[in-house]
Amino acid sequence: MRVSEFWIAVGDEFGAYGRVLARDLALNDIGGLTAEQAIAAGVPPRTIWLALARASDVPESRWYGVGQREPKK
């Protein structure tokens, strides 16, 4: 997942509220960083997306983002 794909997934899942979550929600799975802080720190976007999805109770069936391909197995 690229950073641009991360933002598409955030927008598709949360709408305009996604930017607020990315800025304000501390994500325990990535050391208490917000998504924006994690991006700036170089955390892989997929890791950030999964942390955000878990923290926001996104059903696992949507963890790959709307319109995103599932990873190769």
Rank of each mutant, 00 (worst) to 15 (best):
W63V: 10
F6Y: 10
F6I: 02
A55H: 13
V20W: 09
V43E: 05
K72I: 15
L25R: 15
G42V: 13
A41N: 15
I30Y: 06
Y17I: 13
L52A: 12
A9Q: 03
A41T: 09
E36N: 07
D24S: 12
E5C: 11
D57P: 00
L27A: 09
Q37R: 12
D57K: 13
A40L: 14
P44A: 09
P71H: 15
P44S: 02
L27R: 03
A9T: 01
T34P: 06
L50C: 10
I48F: 02
W49S: 00
R19Y: 14
T47R: 04
A9W: 00
K73A: 05
A38C: 05
A51K: 05
W49V: 00
N28Y: 12
R46D: 08
W7N: 02
L50H: 07
L27I: 06
G32N: 13
T34F: 12
V66K: 11
V20K: 11
L33I: 01
R46V: 01
W7M: 07
R69Q: 14
L25D: 03
G65V: 01
F6M: 06
A16F: 14
A26N: 15
F14C: 15
G18V: 05
A22F: 03
E60F: 14
V3I: 04
P44R: 13
A40K: 15
T47P: 01
P45S: 00
E70G: 04
A22I: 03
L21I: 12
I8V: 11
V3D: 06
Y64N: 14
Y17V: 04
I48A: 00
L27K: 13
R62D: 12
A16T: 10
T34Y: 08
S56C: 04
W7L: 06
G42S: 10
L21N: 02
R46T: 02
A53D: 01
L52D: 13
F14D: 00
S4A: 14
E36K: 13
